[in-house]
């Protein structure tokens, strides 16, 4: 049961005229893996996800998805059907006029007919508790609503794996719990970026970090659930 989904070998990347951000990076995500990625701001986490989706091209290195080497845009089209990316900024992700339009957009592109696409969209919205806002205008939603709808648009594609770029940053505790339980119930592999150690430890089996452009296994952040007592303990907070 260690069939790889994503394999990155010796990947390097630099934005034009800048120091390399990723430098000989190796990373593997296997079927059933639930991995966390925790690293400082600006260390290249988002960039790494964009590389996997083929939105930007590495300066060197090999990308294999489902065991197959991915080179051209046409290979990435197949990848994008099976791996869903949740963008760090949900404003980037939503573009259709209404929520329902947006969630149905992916299934329609996958060749579903109108009725099937609407059914999938409705089902996804129901599972995320979003049926109330299905006819709202996407760019007039609150930040948290946008994030949930963005997640719905990704899940509606029924991907095999997810790349989640800070899925719960800026969300209230209830919404965060909602996302947590959804991810727990799904039979899906993922890599999740987060700065929230508690959240990561609840939802992942391995945690990586990104240092000097390379993936490191974060030993210092060995997983241990912990309970603690201090003022504001009932409010969501982060631990470094």
């Amino acid at each position: 049961m260690t069939k790889p989904i994503i394999q990155l070998e010796n990947i390097s990347f630099a934005f034009p005229g800048r120091q390399p951000i990723l430098n000989g990076l190796d990373l593997t995500l296997n079927w059933g893996d639930r991995a966390g990625l925790i690293a400082p701001n600006g260390s290249g986490k988002t960039t790494l996800f964009h590389l996997v989706m083929g939105l930007i091209k590495p300066t060197s290195g090999i990308i294999r998805i489902f065991g197959k080497r991915i080179l051209a845009e046409k290979d990435f089209r197949v990848v994008r059907r099976r791996i869903g990316l949740l963008f760090q900024d949900s404003d980037d992700q939503l573009f259709s006029p209404t929520v329902l339009d947006d969630v149905a957009f992916g299934p329609l592109n996958l060749g579903k007919n109108k009725e099937e696409a609407i059914a999938i969209a409705e089902e996804t919205l129901t599972s995320l508790n979003l049926t109330d806002i299905r006819n709202r205008i996407t760019f007039k939603l609150s930040g948290g609503e946008k994030r949930l709808v963005a997640l719905a648009t990704v899940l509606a594609m029924k991907p095999d794996a997810l790349l989640l770029d800070e899925p719960v940053t800026g969300l209230d505790r209830d919404t965060r719990h909602r996302i947590e339980s959804i991810l727990r119930e799904l039979d899906i592999s993922y890599i999740m970026i987060s700065h929230n150690m508690d959240f990561l430890s609840q939802l992942t089996t391995r945690i990586f970090s990104l240092e000097n452009g390379k993936i490191t296994v974060d030993d210092t952040a060995a997983l241990h659930p912990h309970f603690h007592l201090h003022s504001h303990g009932t409010h969501p907070h982060e631990h470094k």
Binding site: G84, I118, T153
Partner: peptide
Amino acid sequence: EWAMRCRGFRGRFYHL
């Protein structure tokens, strides 16, 4: 545009 491509957009809109 990236987000649209990530969801399989091939230049065609469908009407719900």
